[in-house]
Lab assay of single mutants.
Amino acid sequence: RLRTTITPEQLEILYEKYLLDSNPTRKMLDHIAREVGLKKRVVQVWFQNTRARERK
């Protein structure tokens, strides 16, 4: 399986959204995914991984 490459522009948007809410609802994930042009599951995993990194 190929990994999804997230561009610096997409990362910037994702981090902005993360600062507003680190645990977004399904509806918010849909909205964020459309905004950055990624699949909802990719955005969901990015948020999970970012939360895990923050806990370390």
Rank of each mutant, 00 (worst) to 15 (best):
K27R: 04
I6M: 13
P24S: 00
D21M: 02
R26F: 08
R53F: 12
V45M: 07
K40E: 15
F47Y: 10
G37W: 00
T5H: 13
V42T: 07
I13G: 07
R41F: 11
L2G: 08
L14V: 00
E9G: 08
L29F: 10
L38S: 01
A52M: 06
I32V: 07
P8S: 04
K39E: 12
T4R: 03
L38Q: 02
T25R: 02
A33V: 02
K39I: 01
I6T: 03
R34P: 03
K27S: 13
G37L: 02
T25L: 03
K27M: 07
N23F: 15
P24N: 02
L29A: 07
T7E: 15
F47Q: 00
H31Y: 07
T4Y: 09
E54D: 09
Q44K: 11
K17W: 03
R26S: 13
M28L: 09
A33H: 01
V45L: 09
D21I: 04
T7G: 08
I32P: 03
E54K: 02
I6K: 01
A52G: 09
I6P: 10
R51S: 13
G37A: 06
W46A: 01
F47R: 00
T50N: 09
D30A: 09
Q10T: 03
L2T: 13
R55M: 13
K40C: 13
R26W: 14
Y18C: 01
K27D: 15
V45W: 04
K56E: 15
W46F: 06
K39P: 14
V36D: 06
Q48E: 15
N23V: 05
R41P: 14
R51L: 14
Q44Y: 14
L38W: 01
N23T: 07
Y18F: 15
E35L: 06
T4P: 12
G37C: 11
L38C: 06
L20F: 10
Q44W: 11
P8N: 12
K40T: 14
F47I: 01
R3G: 14
E9I: 07
Q44V: 08
L2W: 04
P24I: 04
V42P: 06
T50G: 05
P8L: 14
E12T: 14
D21C: 05
K39V: 11
P24T: 00
L2N: 15
T7R: 04
Y18A: 00
R51K: 12
R34H: 08
K17D: 05
T25Q: 04
L19Q: 07
V45N: 05
R55V: 15
I32H: 03
D30P: 03
T25M: 05
F47E: 01
L11P: 00
N49E: 15
K39R: 09
M28G: 09
R34V: 11
Q48K: 11
H31P: 04
D21L: 04
L2C: 06
T50V: 10
G37N: 13
L11K: 10
P8W: 07
L19T: 08
N49Y: 04
Q10Y: 01
L11Q: 12
V43D: 01
V36G: 01
R51A: 14
R55P: 12
T5E: 13
K27A: 14
R26N: 15
D21V: 04
R1C: 14
K40W: 12
T4A: 06
Q44P: 01
E12K: 14
F47G: 00
E35K: 04
V42C: 07
E9W: 06
A33I: 08
Q48G: 14
E12R: 12
R34N: 14
P8I: 12
V36S: 12
R53T: 12
V43I: 08
E35V: 05
A52N: 14
R53K: 13
V36L: 09
Q44A: 11
G37K: 08
L14S: 00
L14H: 01
K40G: 13
E9M: 08
I13R: 11
I13V: 10
R34S: 14
T4C: 07
P8K: 06
L19F: 10
P8M: 05
I6L: 07
V45E: 15
T7A: 14
E12N: 10
L38M: 08
N49A: 12
R55G: 13
V42Q: 11
K56T: 15
Y18T: 01
K39W: 01
L20V: 11
W46N: 00
V43L: 05
V43T: 03
R55E: 15
L20C: 07
G37Q: 10
L11N: 07
V45T: 11
Q10P: 01
R55L: 13
D21N: 07
M28N: 04
R51P: 00
Q48W: 03
H31V: 13
T50I: 11
N49G: 07
S22W: 04
T5N: 15
F47H: 01
M28A: 11
K40F: 14
E35T: 06
I32G: 00
S22H: 06
T4V: 07
I13H: 03
Y18K: 03
I13M: 10
H31L: 09
L29R: 05
M28Y: 04
A33S: 08
E12C: 07
Y15I: 07
E9N: 08
R34L: 11
L19S: 11
D30G: 10
L11M: 10
T5A: 05
R34F: 09
I6H: 07
V42G: 03
L20Q: 07
K27E: 13
N49D: 11
W46G: 02
K40H: 07
Q48L: 03
Q44F: 04
R1N: 12
V36H: 04
K27Q: 13
I13E: 10
P24V: 01
L11S: 10
V36R: 00
V42A: 07
K56W: 05
E9K: 13
L11V: 13
V42K: 06
K39H: 10
R3S: 15
R3F: 11
E54I: 06
R53P: 05
K17A: 06
V36K: 02
M28P: 00
T4K: 04
S22M: 08
E9A: 10
Q48F: 05
P8A: 13
Q48A: 14
Q48T: 12
L38P: 01
Y15H: 13
R3K: 15
K17P: 05
E35A: 07
L14A: 01
R3M: 14
T7Y: 04
T4W: 05
R51V: 12
E35W: 03
Y18E: 00
W46M: 01
R26L: 14
T7V: 07
R41K: 15
T50A: 12
N23E: 10
I6Q: 01
L11C: 01
D21Q: 05
P8G: 03
R55D: 15
H31R: 09
A52T: 05
E54R: 03
R41S: 15
T50W: 09
R55W: 09
D30W: 08
I32L: 08
Y15G: 12
E12L: 11
H31M: 08
V43N: 01
R51F: 10
V42M: 09
S22L: 03
Q48D: 15
L19W: 07
H31E: 15
L11I: 11
H31K: 13
Y15T: 12
V36A: 09
V43H: 03
T5M: 07
L2H: 05
Q44S: 06
K56A: 07
V45D: 14
D21A: 04
L20R: 08
L14M: 07
L20P: 02
R1S: 15
E9C: 04
R26M: 09
L29V: 11
P24Q: 00
R55T: 09
P8C: 03
E54S: 06
E35M: 06
S22G: 10
K39S: 15
A52C: 02
R55I: 12
V45K: 06
E9L: 07
K39C: 13
T50P: 02
L11W: 07
E54G: 05
Q48N: 07
